[in-house]
């Protein structure tokens, strides 16, 4: 192969394009892997997984379940996300929405939620709230 100035330029372009293509493919794979994820629980007694009774109960529940949480501490958000994920594996139409309390002051006043935040669970039209106490146990 002979190298001329033009071929040199073409190789440079090819290199750039292949890098971009590589990153796109990696991104796509990452998206696919996040979309279709399987998991297995390695802990003793499968502590990360719901008990059979809970799973059965979850399946019998009709309609969409939306959990809305008004939280601002990252650590709590993480804990809640982990907790809800256990239920999500049993019921696919269970959604978690985490809202920033500071962004919705009107909503907070309407629902009478204090500074500590709250978690609302909506099953169909019924809403059940569990306001967080100021001093969690």
């Amino acid at each position: 192969m002979k190298i001329s100035q033009r071929i040199h330029h073409r190789i440079w372009l090819k290199n750039l394009l292949s890098t971009v293509a590589l990153l796109i493919v990696i991104g796509l794979l990452a998206w696919l892997s996040a979309r279709y994820s399987a998991q297995s629980d390695w802990t003793a007694n499968a502590r990360n997984t719901l008990s059979e009774a809970s799973q059965k109960l979850l399946v019998t529940m009709p309609g969409e379940i939306v959990i809305t949480a008004y939280l601002d501490q990252p650590a709590l958000k993480k804990q809640l996300t982990d907790l809800v994920r256990r239920y999500q594996t049993g019921k696919s139409d269970l959604r978690l929405v985490i809202e920033d309390p500071d962004a919705h002051p009107g909503q907070l006043r309407k629902l009478d939620i204090g500074a500590a935040g709250a978690i609302l669970v909506a099953i169909g039209d019924a809403v059940k709230g569990c306001p967080r106490s100021a001093n969690p146990p």
């Binding site: 290199n15 590589l22 990153l23 990696i26 996040a34 399987a38 998991q39």
Partner: peptide
């Protein structure tokens, strides 16, 4: 203790990306 394929894939893709970029 919850081994999810999305987390495994994340780390494998991460290493593979930077190795491929290095070769490039």
């Amino acid at each position: 203790g919850l081994i999810a394929s999305r987390d495994l894939c994340y780390f494998l893709l991460f290493s593979a990306t930077f190795l491929l970029l290095s070769i490039h």
